[in-house]
Amino acid sequence: MAHRLFNAALAGLLALGVCLGALSMSAAAHAAPVKLVALGDSLTAGYGLPPDQGFTVVLEKALKARGYDVTVVNAGVSGDTTAGGRARLEWTLGDTPDAMIVELGANDMLRGIDPGASRANLDTILKTITERKIPVLLAGMYASGTYGKAYVDRFNAIYPDLAQAYGVPLYPFFLEGVATEPRLNQGDGIHPNAAGVQRVVEGILPYVTRLLDQRAHGG
C-alpha cells in the first residue's frame, strides 16, 4: 500500500514538474523580444554613419522608448538592388524574423534598371514573406524625374500596386522629408546624415508600430 502511494506521489510530482517546465518555457518564449528585420540597401544599412546612428539602431531606440520589446535587425547591404535582396532572402529568413520591413529599389532606379525587373523581384520577395505569414511593411521609393515620365510612372507604380496585391501596409516614400534637403543628407546628396535618419524614423515609426500592434493581436 505504502509502495503504491509513493509511486502515485512520485508520478504526481513528475507531472507537476513537466507542467511547470512547459509554463516556464512558454513564459520565456513570450518574454523574448520581437525580432523585426529590415531587408534593404544602404539606406537601412546606415551607409556613412557611425553604427549607433544608422536606421535600425535609431528605429529600435524609438520603438523601445514607446514601450515595444523589440530587436531591429539590420539586413541592409549597401549597393543592393531588388535582385540582390531577392537572392539573399532565404538567408535573411533563416534569422526567423517575427516581422519585416522591405526597403529596396533605390539602386535599381539610380542604375536605370527596367522597372519590370524591379517589380518582379519585389513581387517574389513579398510573395515569399507573406506565404510564411510574416507581417511585412513595404517601404516605397520614388524615381528621379531625370529618367523621363514613362520611367517614373512605371517605377513609382511598383510599390502601391504590390502593396495592394499582397494586402501589406505601404510607407509610400522611405526618404519622405529628407530627399533633396541638403541639411539632412551627407555630402553625396543621397544618403541621410544623422539628422536625416532621425527624420526617416519619425516618418516611418507610426507605420512600424501599427505593424507590430497588428502582429500582437493576430491581425
Rank of each mutant, 00 (worst) to 15 (best):
M1A: 07
A2W: 11
H3E: 14
L10N: 10
G12Q: 04
V18P: 01
L23W: 15
S24M: 08
S24Y: 12
S26E: 13
H30L: 04
A31Q: 09
A32P: 04
A32L: 07
V34F: 05
L39V: 15
L39Y: 13
S42C: 07
S42E: 15
A45H: 11
A45C: 11
A45Y: 14
P50V: 03
P51K: 02
D52Q: 13
D52G: 04
Q53R: 13
Q53G: 02
Q53M: 13
T56V: 08
T56F: 11
V57K: 08
V58K: 07
L59R: 11
E60L: 14
K61S: 14
K61P: 02
A65C: 14
D69L: 13
T71E: 07
T71P: 00
V73Y: 05
V73M: 04
V73H: 09
N74T: 02
G76E: 05
S78C: 00
D80L: 00
T81K: 06
T81R: 07
A83K: 05
G85H: 12
R86P: 01
L89I: 08
T92R: 03
T96K: 10
T96I: 09
P97G: 09
D98A: 07
V102S: 00
N107S: 03
D108T: 06
M109N: 06
M109L: 03
G112V: 04
A117M: 14
A117R: 15
A117G: 13
S118R: 12
S118I: 06
A120I: 01
A120Q: 05
N121A: 07
N121P: 05
K127A: 15
I129G: 08
E131Q: 12
R132I: 10
R132M: 14
K133Q: 10
L137R: 02
M141Y: 02
Y142W: 02
G145C: 05
G145L: 03
G148S: 04
A150I: 04
Y151G: 00
R154L: 07
F155Y: 04
F155A: 02
N156D: 12
N156Q: 14
I158W: 13
I158K: 14
Y159C: 03
P160N: 14
L162T: 10
Q164P: 00
Q164A: 11
Y166C: 02
G167D: 06
L170V: 00
F173S: 05
F174G: 01
L175K: 10
L175A: 04
E176R: 02
G177A: 14
V178E: 12
A179C: 11
A179Q: 11
T180I: 15
R183Q: 09
N185E: 15
G187K: 15
G189P: 04
I190V: 12
P192Q: 15
N193D: 14
A194H: 09
A194T: 13
A195D: 15
G196D: 11
V200A: 02
V200D: 06
E202C: 10
G203P: 00
P206C: 06
T209Y: 00
T209P: 06
R210L: 07
L211M: 00
L212K: 05
D213A: 12
Q214H: 09
A216I: 09
G218T: 01
